[in-house]
Each structure stands twice: as C-alpha cells, then as structure tokens.
Design a protein around this nucleic acid. Structure first.
Lengths: 117, 117
DNA sequence: ACCAAATATTCGGTCAATCGAATATAGCGA
DNA sequence: TCGCTATATTCGATTGACCGAATATTTGGT
C-alpha cells in the first residue's frame, strides 16, 4: 500500500483523529458509538473525522448490523504503523490523553452489544 | 521538553518541512542556503517554513557570521524523535524523496563555506 | 409499513495555512 | 560608509480545515 507522508501527518494533526487511532491501536476494533463516548464528542463530529481517516486509507470499516466497526488498516506501510505506535507509546501516559484513556477503561463490555447514548 | 502531538504532526504535514527534518536528521546541521538548494525551493519559501519549525520548537538555529545553521532540537521528546526517525527510514528510499536525497548527495563539501546560488 | 437507533452528509460561516512577489534586516568586507 | 550576501518579514489573495446545527440514510425490530 502507498501512503504519502503528508496524508498520514495531516490526519494525525487533529486530536480527535489521533485519539481514534490510538484507541484503535489498543482495542483492535471499535464502533462509532464507542469512539464517540470514549472521546466525548458529538456524533457528527466523530463521523466526519472517521470519514477523513477512512478517505486517507488509515482505517477500514466493517458493517455489523446497525453498528459500523473501525480498525486500523492492516495494509498500512510499516513506517506509518511505526509512527502511530511510537506516538501512542510516548503520548499514552500524558495529558490530554490520560483522562480519555481512563474513560475508555470504564467502557462497557465489548463482548456485548455496545450501550450507546 | 513538552510537545503537543498536534504541533509535531502539523509541522510534518508539509512536504518542505518534513524534508528539512529528514535532511537535518542525516546531516546534523545545515544552513538555510544548503536546505534551499537541496530542496529546490525559493528562499522566502524555505525561510518561512524553517520559521515555523523553529516556532514549533522542532529545530534550533545558530548564527555563524552570515549563515544561520539549523539542527533538530536536541531536547525533543523521545517519542517525537522516534516518529521522525521512523518516517525517515520508511520514506527515505521512496518518491518523492529519492530525487531530493540524490540531489543532496551532490551537495558541496560541508567543511568549506557553502556555495549558494 | 412504520418507528427508532446508529451513522453519515449537507449547509453556511469562520479561521488558519499557504503562496508569489516585493521588501526589509543583519553581518561582512572594502 | 557602501555594497553585497544570507536570511527574514510583510502584503494581498486564495484555498482548505473545522465547526455547530440540521437533515438524510441505513438497518433491524415490531
């Protein structure tokens, strides 16, 4: 897969999108309502930015009934994956991500259907 | 040193700035005219983007007579440094960087005063 | 067929990034 | 002091990112 540096970095330059990727890195797969709740954003906001991530080729989506599950595109070039991983490592224990990650820990059981707002 | 992810990634999202960082990573220190020649941009263009890198805290500058030498800020957080290194590794052998890097190889001897346009 | 939940899109407006061209500043040597 | 070289800044214009609010689409259940 081909990915221009500017495409990746423009995507990572927005907190909402970066946090989505960090969360997807940890949880493999999350649906929109889970991401929305974890980040505490409005639904159209999340949908817009997930759309941008999809258009950039950074994530893939999978429809399962009413929900749409996103995951990091498994075909990402390895340098891009490394960039995301290094960012997640460096930024994981710091503000403004700590609060969001702890919110995520309290997320409903992923084996059941997500309990959305 | 503190560096917001959005600050780093916004900087990396522009090809000129990304290439400057990749070049500085390889050459430790370069002056503006060397970067300008290597990238093949107009001088105000380079100056503007170097200014942004400086404002973002990603590079430091050192005046030596008429020339101003830039280098990657040695106080960058390690995750940011890792991001730059991984990007340089992944992108180094590919377009559109290959042509620029080969142009750099042909750069004048760095031990002498730079021969600028 | 209809309703409700999850997700996506459109619209109008604002603010920031970028550019080319022109101009300004700073240091050096004669 | 003057002029040259390297670098920085300003200006006006264009383009693109982002937002909130409203609306549309898709799907499953009844």
């Amino acid at each position: 897969m081909n990915l221009l540096p500017a495409t990746l970095f423009s995507a990572l330059a927005h907190d909402t999108r970066l946090r989505c990727l960090v969360l997807l890195l940890e949880y493999q797969e999350l649906c929109v309502c889970e991401l929305t709740e974890a980040i505490g954003a409005a639904q159209p906001h999340m949908s817009r930015h997930l759309g941008q991530l999809r258009e950039a080729g950074l994530v893939t989506d999978r429809r399962a009934g009413l929900w749409i599950h996103y995951r990091i595109n498994p075909e990402l070039p390895s340098w891009a994956m490394s960039v995301i991983v290094e960012t997640a490592k460096g930024v994981g224990g710091l503000e403004p991500f700590a609060s969001d990650l702890s919110a995520l820990v309290a997320m409903p059981d992923r084996s059941a259907a997500p309990r959305c707002a």
